[in-house]
Computed example of a mutant assay.
Amino acid sequence: MDEATSARRSSENLLDERLIERCEAIPERPEPGQYVVIDTMHFSNTVIELLAKGAAHIHITDERGNEFSYRERYPDAVLGGGSTDEYEPADGYDFFNSPSYVQRLDVDGSPVSMTSSNGGRAVACLRARAGDDVDVFVGSTMNAAALGEYLRGQDGQVHLVSSGSKGEVAVEDHIGATLVSRYLDGVPVSETELDLFRRQLETAKGHDYTETHDLRRRDVREYAMNVNSRDVLPKLVGDSLVDVSVAPDEAAAEEQAAD
């Protein structure tokens, strides 16, 4: 990055140039660069927590149900799927998209296979459409600072995919994208702004969302609202996400994804 570009980025936020507002808006032919998939509630935070707990890698399926064929190849795989009305994993699955639920799992050293209707779909879409000149990451409010600072040292344009929900924009994903963009540009985020973002996150899915179940209350308050609580950097290598904060070079990342 040249000095002029660095100086410009230190004084302005380039979010509008980077933002893809919904996963449905991902280009048919993504231009080269770094793509960050943001699905704050709850795919991104579930991915972050699984890797923080030591998962070897997280295989992203093209569609829900393919996780079982993955387990046929990797019998020790931990599978993520849908949830029941009682917030338990659907039949045959070990967990669902919930960063607080996965705290119950022992995934240290194990492969994981999962997807989601928005964030997981966005990762799979980019994997299918992008060439070798595209890198895919997963971000959220939880790792915004670590990811923004990491991407500042990478080459190429950054694109922030705010995954959305059922084809609509999602406030919580836009907040995650805003934070990643600000840290990428080196534009400080004040405590007043962070407090505002946290209040918006608490009600992003409806004023009574955190009252639907204790698990969802924890998902929002202890994870989504816990801004910059993780340094995990999920990056897509092949079909799987690995944490490049612990496998920073490409060879190590490929080995981790293949384990």
Rank of each mutant, 00 (worst) to 15 (best):
M1G: 15
R8G: 07
S11W: 15
N13D: 14
L15R: 00
L19R: 11
L19A: 08
I20M: 02
E21L: 13
E21R: 14
R22W: 10
C23R: 13
A25M: 11
I26Y: 01
P27L: 01
P30N: 13
P32S: 04
P32N: 05
Q34S: 12
Q34A: 08
Y35T: 04
I38M: 04
D39N: 01
D39R: 05
T40M: 10
M41S: 07
F43Q: 07
F43A: 01
F43Y: 05
S44W: 11
S44D: 03
T46V: 06
V47H: 01
K53Y: 00
I58K: 05
H59Y: 14
E63A: 14
R64H: 13
R64M: 14
E67K: 04
S69Q: 15
Y70T: 08
R71S: 06
P75Y: 15
A77P: 00
G80E: 02
P89T: 05
D91T: 14
G92K: 13
D94H: 04
F96R: 01
S98E: 05
P99I: 02
P99V: 02
Y101H: 03
V102D: 00
R104M: 03
D108T: 10
P111N: 02
G119A: 05
R121T: 10
A122S: 11
V123F: 09
V123Y: 00
L126V: 02
A128N: 06
A128D: 12
A128Y: 11
G131D: 08
V134C: 04
V134P: 01
F137W: 14
V138C: 01
T141C: 07
N143F: 07
N143T: 09
N143P: 02
Y150L: 13
L151W: 09
S162V: 13
A170L: 10
E172Y: 11
D173R: 01
D173N: 00
I175Q: 00
G176L: 02
S181H: 06
S181F: 02
Y183M: 03
P188Y: 10
S190V: 13
E191S: 03
D195F: 14
L196R: 13
F197M: 00
R199N: 13
Q200A: 15
Q200I: 10
Q200H: 15
L201G: 02
E202T: 12
T203S: 15
T203Y: 10
A204D: 01
D208L: 13
D208K: 10
T210Q: 08
H213E: 09
R216G: 06
R216F: 13
R216Y: 12
V220Y: 06
R221Q: 12
E222R: 11
E222Y: 11
A224R: 00
M225Q: 11
V227E: 01
N228W: 02
V237R: 04
V237G: 00
G238N: 07
G238T: 10
G238A: 06
D239M: 14
S240W: 08
D243C: 04
D249Y: 06
A252M: 00
A252R: 09
A253G: 11
Q256M: 13
A258G: 01
